[in-house]
Amino acid sequence: MKKAVCFIGGILLLSFIGLKVKKNIFTYPEYWPKPVYDIIKNPVTEEGFQLGRALFYDPILSKDNTISCASCHLQASGFTHIDHDLSHGIEGKIGTRNSLAIMNSAWSDSFMWDGGINHLEVQALAPLTSDVEMAETLENVVRKLDTIPFYKKMFYKAFQDSTITGQRVLLGFTQFTLMLNTYNSKYDKYIRKEVGGEFTAQEKNGLKLFRNNCASCHTEPLFATNKFKNNGLAVDTTLNDYGRMKITQNPKDSLRFKVPTLRNIQFTKPYMHDGRFETLQEVITHYTNGIQQSETLSEELKDPILFTHREKVDLLVFLRTLTDKEFLFDKRFSFPKALITQK
């Protein structure tokens, strides 16, 4: 009897919710930590995801209609800009930082190298309005989109209402970004003991070295932490970028930067906030030989890291196991044909 009451109550509740919420398509391995982003409150729907995908690839969002998010965030390189140390934007203007890869963003509590953005939903505002990136205003983007029937339809599908607002544009980007999740690398298969995840002795040794020397900051399974650290890079005096201090205005944060994920690291070159390293070999050599002592240098790096030549190679081989081809070539994340055929 009581069971029945519970059941009916549950059905009532579900039907209330069911009217508003469509099916959530956001998933992740059950042994992963809970995302920071509130997926329960803002589930990802297929319609929202497709809207975000169109927005992400559409150059109409820049002032002169030439640059889209994808101009700087290419799928095949883990959604970052390759072959440029500092990202290029509108009219070829050069920004001051290397673009970050967009992966597993639901687990980040702040964005950008200095963490200046405190919520994924407002992240897109920065590139949209930056003079050196897309140089638009959100107000104007709303106005532009409002004149395009294709988008009116997309917004209707996503929000059951075709009114385009700044909030909805931002939520659209968020829905797409939230889906850019990578957890099918060889490393992941090794952890899950799946076929294709058999580690060689070299890779196993690389993982061990990684866990002993790098994982305190680049922590599994995300290979990142929501912290800002000084990893001993010398200041580039042509840029004078002091990272986190710009946001907090606290000298203790001088030269601290976001700890980026190392997933798909083989493909996200160049490396570091200013793209100063071209290869992973250079990065490893930085950690063994290049650490600059300073007041804010992280505790973890105060003692020198000593690797033999063979150990360096093993670590490198391990880092390559973080490559997730399924993610890098997933057709759902690529340029949507609808942008050409329907718009």
Binding site: I117, L128, T129, T137, E139, Q167
Partner: peptide, 9 residues
């Protein structure tokens, strides 16, 4: 944020 009263960076 389209009201222009929100900081981007």
């Amino acid at each position: 944020p389209a009201n222009g009263m929100y900081w981007a960076w």
